[in-house]
């Protein structure tokens, strides 16, 4: 009952962005649990019951030195849904994404103001433990970046950082992570070989496996397919659809079809501002803003 209607792979745009109503109810019961019966009956007529907010941005601004890259962002990223960031190059998608796990801390000139909450706690606060944040919020990059280590050591890298495991637990964790990222069958016989020997698409799935091995709740993906061929892209998209109900996924993409295929919600950015954010279907059919419509229909500029 909890399994969502599996989309026929290939029937892409028709894949309903809104999951079945009873699934929303299940999530509601899992998270808030007031009275399950009442909850279910209440949800029947209103299918748009929103999942809880995972990441919330309010009056969020960001700068690189004197250059302001983001202006007054107001955004709710729903839990266990796929949110797509779209918009022309340089509009600040990556910048916002990299604040979600404070990767911008590694850029000396980067700073931010406003609030950015992860489940209600301000993740920008200096008191927030960045190491713990990054364990909870994983990231996959545009260019696959496996470490020049064995496939096994790539996956085991994160877990070993944070905890001590027995040998067999670690092996099990590596296997489960690789299975979850749909790459186990391709690498199970060569776990001790260098990850650099894998194809680009395999490397990217390895990087996803590496990210989920530390048990994050959020996965940030910055144009994860832009360096990949169409087949590998399809594999990653399948994987995202597969992971969508266990992870809160935020994916930056330049590919409109990809946003339409994999995401539940879409946020359109333009010149450092969030123009609008809504259900993906709405953004692609009846957006509220003219710029959005021009952009998604490829009539931009």
């Amino acid at each position: 009952m909890t399994t969502p209607p599996t989309a026929a792979s290939g029937g892409v745009v028709t894949d309903s962005p809104r999951p079945a109503t009873n699934k929303v109810a299940v999530i509601e019961t899992m998270t808030t649990t007031p009275t399950p019966n009442q909850n279910q009956t209440q949800n029947q007529p209103t299918p748009a019951a929103e999942p809880p907010v995972c990441i919330q941005a309010r009056e969020f601004n960001s700068w690189y030195g004197d250059f302001q890259a983001l202006h007054g962002i107001e955004l709710d990223v729903p839990t266990n849904r796929v949110t797509a960031f779209i918009g022309p190059s340089g509009c600040g998608k990556s910048t916002l994404l990299r604040w979600f796990n404070r990767m911008n801390d590694t850029i000396p000139s980067a700073r931010a103001s406003g609030t950015l909450d992860l489940h209600g706690t301000d993740l920008l606060s200096t008191r927030y433990d960045v190491v713990d944040l990054r364990r909870r919020v994983g990231m996959v990059f545009q260019k696959p970046n496996p470490f020049p280590k064995s496939i096994f050591d790539n996956i085991a890298y994160g877990p070993r950082l944070h905890r001590r495991y027995t040998r067999s637990d670690l092996a099990e964790l590596v296997e489960q992570s690789l299975r979850r990222a749909a790459i186990w069958d391709e690498v199970k016989d060569r776990l001790n070989q260098s990850a650099l020997g894998l194809s680009g698409g395999q490397q990217q799935r390895l990087c996803i496996a590496r990210a989920i091995a530390v048990g994050p709740e959020v996965l940030l993906m910055d144009e994860p397919c832009s360096a990949l061929d169409p087949r590998s892209t399809a594999a990653i998209e399948d994987l995202i659809r597969d992971l969508r109900h266990q992870y809160t996924i935020v994916i930056v993409t330049h590919n409109m079809q990809q946003a339409a295929r994999v995401s539940d919600r879409t946020a359109f950015f333009y010149e450092g501002r969030l123009v609008e954010s809504d259900e993906t279907e709405r953004i692609f059919t009846t957006p509220a803003h003219r710029e959005t419509e021009d952009y998604v229909s490829g009539r931009f500029g």
């Binding site: 796990n101 990059f141 470490f147």
Partner: peptide
């Protein structure tokens, strides 16, 4: 050593020391 490797290490929760010793030096 490509910047992407450092990013990958930091994104998994590595400290600067972890990143240097476990990723950059081996690389």
């Amino acid at each position: 050593v490509p910047r992407g490797l450092r990013d990958g290490a930091y994104a998994l929760g590595s400290t600067r020391f972890d990143t240097s010793v476990r990723v950059v030096i081996p690389g």
